[in-house]
Amino acid sequence: MDCGICYAYQLDGTIPDQVCDNSQCGQPFHQICLYEWLRGLLTSRQSFNIIFGECPYCSKPITLKMS
């Protein structure tokens, strides 16, 4: 499936590997796309290497662990 942010399947050789945990959403994202999206939200917060925010599609909580 394509990334829900950039709408591409491959981005710099990677495929969407982050998925919204909401079973009714399940939208996939590239890690870098989701990172940039969450960084741009005023409501997002970060604790060590984990960013907490809202899914761009369903607005439910989503987390991103940076590797």
Rank of each mutant, 00 (worst) to 15 (best):
D17L: 08
G26M: 09
L34R: 00
V19A: 08
Y57C: 13
L42R: 12
Q10G: 05
A8Q: 14
A8K: 13
E36Q: 08
Y57S: 14
Q18M: 08
E36K: 08
Q24H: 07
C55P: 01
L64R: 02
P16L: 00
C55R: 05
V19C: 04
T63P: 03
H30R: 00
D12Q: 03
S47L: 10
Y35C: 04
P28D: 01
Y57H: 03
C6D: 02
L42K: 15
L41D: 13
P16S: 02
K65T: 11
L42D: 15
L41T: 07
G26H: 10
Q27S: 05
S44G: 08
I50L: 09
N22D: 04
L42V: 14
N22Q: 04
Q46V: 14
P28L: 12
Y7V: 02
L41E: 13
E36D: 15
S44V: 10
P28W: 12
S23I: 15
H30M: 01
Y57R: 13
Y7L: 13
M66L: 07
C33R: 00
Y9K: 07
Q46H: 05
Q46S: 11
L34W: 02
Q24F: 09
S59M: 06
C6A: 02
M66G: 14
Y9A: 03
G26Q: 13
Y9L: 06
R45N: 06
Q18T: 11
Q10H: 12
L64M: 08
Y7R: 15
Q46E: 14
G40T: 09
T43M: 02
T43R: 07
L34S: 01
I62A: 03
F48W: 10
C3Y: 00
I62K: 00
P56W: 04
M66E: 15
S47R: 10
Q24T: 12
H30D: 02
D21E: 11
V19R: 08
R39E: 07
L34M: 03
T14R: 08
I5W: 01
L34K: 00
F48P: 15
D17V: 11
L11N: 03
C33D: 01
L38Y: 01
G40R: 12
C6Q: 01
L11Y: 10
C6G: 00
G13V: 04
A8M: 13
R45A: 14
L38N: 15
G26P: 04
Q27E: 03
D21N: 06
D21G: 05
Q18S: 05
T63E: 13
C6T: 00
F29K: 00
F48M: 13
R39L: 08
K65P: 13
P56A: 02
G40D: 07
C20W: 01
G4S: 04
S59Q: 12
V19E: 05
S47E: 15
F48K: 06
Q18V: 14
H30W: 00
I15T: 10
S23V: 12
Q10P: 08
C20S: 00
I32N: 04
Y35T: 11
I62R: 02
Q10S: 11
S23T: 07
I62L: 09
I50C: 10
I15P: 09
Q27L: 06
I62E: 02
S44L: 10
G53H: 01
F29D: 00
I50S: 14
S59A: 08
S44F: 15
G26S: 07
D21K: 12
T14M: 14
G40V: 08
P56S: 00
I5L: 15
G26Y: 09
C3F: 03
Q10C: 12
S44I: 05
S44C: 05
Q24P: 14
G40K: 14
W37Q: 12
D2I: 08
Y9C: 02
Q31K: 08
H30Y: 01
